[in-house]
Design a protein around this nucleic acid. Structure first.
Lengths: 228, 228
DNA sequence: GAGGGGTAGATTGTTGACAATCATACGAGC
DNA sequence: GCTCGTATGATTGTCAACAATCTACCCCTC
């Protein structure tokens, strides 16, 4: 009997579960930026009392997803153009660090993991499912940083990826054109496998800059805009 | 009348205030890693009910300072040698990104702000106050990242700095030898003023590597050690 | 008609009590 | 003597009620 497979039973707190639900909803654009989250209604909808719900909210406040105004309520943090730039810049820094760590570790294993994520993305793109492509994009970058083995880089990246999804949702751009996107990710993967440091950082930087450009360019989607 | 000086009144939530208090206590080593934080006692000591206290705890859990075990309690997260390396590596990445941003901005203004922090550190070193030196060190790096103008880098750096203090407290090394420390910070400041990119990143990297080496070297302080 | 003051409704903040779960100590059985 | 089962005390998880505050509306005054 292999004891290494025996993971401790998952006993997460109710607050953690509730936080996950709300985080996902914010990410998917169910609660657009600026929305006030009423406690009683949310608690009723989630089937919990206001106590655990408030605990979950505090978690999301700490993550920077919610903004708390005393005696007034909790609001989904609104993002402007400067935030979009800041998010992608921070992501570039974190993923660069993770990428360099990747090069020092087991490159082949990491590249294989990334290939798997890439396959999912390719499948979603082929199926023409924009939401699935966005999910795969998210998963790829999460995997990229996770493979570095740094818990803190992972934590920071996860937070930034959630904010990224918020931006996409706010702009109704669930997925950028998947043709170039797929190629950029594939290149990232190849750079890891090849152990090419300069290429990796360059591609990463370009990937982020491209994304910012796409998001901040005057969108053709009506009603999809960011303040200032 | 200058309206720019009129900041909105500070009306932070009770949970935020409580979280600050506990965070500081953890940082200072009042609650060593592994300590269980009983809710009733803490609430009584802080003069609040268990509700707001639990909200504050969730915040600290989200920040990664506390570890929550369902129906068992909240514990101060314990750090091992791998964590120390991870913390400083993540700090190096974040501060590098902030530093590069600094070079593109108003270098002179940033250098002036850093000089002020440096002066405080020099004063503390001259007074032979190890705790004050540690505070000044913390403040310098916080200022360094804050001056970059990136809210997300700032948030991440603040979290990492708190963890840094946890390490120092756990090792009873409130302050490393202040002679070399002061010089390293001064060099960082000068690199910013000069706009020397390569020097800045090199010094930063060395500064972090030095710190890890100091912390993980077999300490002469009895009873001050980290697991595995 | 514009501005100030007051009131009513709704929402958040806080509290104390109750239920569920866990850790420890004790005793029975093998 | 060791192990298993049980009871007890303490701690956490959850809830519903109360208090404080804010927003919006109406009315009065100038």
């Amino acid at each position: 009997m292999d004891l290494t497979d025996l993971e401790p039973v998952e006993r997460r707190s109710t607050a953690a579960i509730v936080a996950d639900r709300i985080r996902t909803a914010i990410m998917r654009g169910t609660f657009p930026p600026g929305t006030q989250l009423g406690e009683v209604e949310l608690a009723a909808r989630l089937g919990v009392s206001r106590g655990p719900l408030r605990e979950a909210m505090q978690r999301l406040v700490a993550e920077g997803l919610l903004r708390s105004e005393r005696h007034r309520g909790l609001f989904v943090r609104d993002l402007d153009a400067a935030d979009v730039r800041d998010i992608y810049h921070a992501r570039a820094s974190v993923e660069r660090a993770a990428g360099l760590l990747l090069l020092d570790g087991d490159r082949e294993a990491a590249a294989d993991r990334l290939d798997a994520a890439l396959a999912v993305m390719a499948g979603a793109a082929a199926a023409g499912d924009p939401a699935a492509v966005a999910d795969a994009d998210h998963a790829f970058h999460a995997e990229f940083v996770a493979a570095s083995g740094s818990p803190r880089l992972r934590r920071m990246a996860d937070g930034l990826l959630v904010e990224t999804r918020m931006c996409l949702a706010a702009l109704q751009q669930t997925a950028p054109p998947s043709a170039g996107l797929l190629a950029e990710h594939r290149e990232l993967c190849e750079a890891v496998r090849a152990g090419d440091r300069d290429r990796l950082t360059a591609v990463l930087e370009a990937h982020m800059a491209d994304a910012v450009g796409r998001l901040l360019a005057p969108s053709a989607v009506p009603g999809a805009s960011l303040p200032a």
